[in-house]
Amino acid sequence: MNRFEYARPATLAEAVAAGAVPGAAYLAAGTNLMDLMKGGVMRPGHLVDISRLPGLDRIERLGDGGVRIGALVRNADLAYDTDFARRFPSVAEALLSGASAQLRNAATAGGNLLQRTRCTYFYDTASACNKRDPGTGCDALGGENRLHAVLGWSEHCIATHPSDFCVPLTALDAVVEVEGPKGRRDIPLENFHLLPGSTPERETVLEHSELITAVRLPAEAARFAANARYLKVRERTSYAFAVVSAAAALRLEGGMVAEARIALGGVALKPWRARAAEAELAGARPEPVTFRRAAEAALADAKPSGDNGFKIELARRIIVRTLTLAAAGTPERMPALPASPFSGAITHA
């Protein structure tokens, strides 16, 4: 453990001021940051503990029908909020497919957005990593990279963003509320994370000391509630990050798709909104051939960054399946295994 200063400000303003110190990092539940510090991947000189800041742990239904999720709302509290889960079922499903029950009880909404990649070369401090140590190179290139990015990557970084939560949020036009030295601002989640380009160390558009205070879902997002799913393919049945995941939300009118939302997880360094796929679906009949066309459009620009070409076809298939499930309707009850292709209870042939 490195030596660091620890502060626990009482107010948001104090927190933002404390966070302005060079080398400062915000600490919420610490489910990711603590691991990174123990492994020597991050060595912040100042920890600003925001976990007890007042007013950030609320789920507020807004007057227009939207919802504001406080940055400190725990994953489990959000997923098990009946009203939230009913109106944004794919978000609840994504939350419950992530991590383990213990982690979900601790991890916060804001922290989820800022979790770091699971690229093993990022975690392995003996490896070169442009994200951890800018300019050192990327050992994932040409290395063990079967789970790495197939969209939006650069030769500087082929990592992926690991969040489940962010995938349906991106599809549903979530907005990130941040507080900083220059005041408050809103950032659409779709623009919040940055692709690696030549600066993979820069992961979001947040300025130094800017603090996430809430994530907002607009009222329109609830209009997809009847046909919204999240699906996550992984290498064990639970407690694993996505190989590829997808969120799909449909607004059906008269048997046709009035509006579609699709985002992918595990394919890029940000939750990947598939707008080209959405365009294929708008006004179309919700049927396999359309879904396949949407899937092709979503992955049109994909290319392997290593031994991971299989993820491209896998992503297409996941889009088709998630759209199929969404079209069939959101289930009454949360599946026993949320977001899993295996819906839950074991039945025998």
Binding site: R118, D124, A126, G143, R236, T237, Y239
Partner: peptide
């Protein structure tokens, strides 16, 4: 059959998943 696999980087000889988050063993749901 389905999970365990110590991933060694062929260039460096380093183990790339030396932890129980990435070195998979079955969880209850498996």
């Amino acid at each position: 059959a389905l999970h365990e696999h110590a991933v060694m980087d062929k260039r460096s000889g380093r183990l790339m998943n030396p932890n129980l988050a990435e070195y998979y063993v079955p969880v209850n749901a498996d």
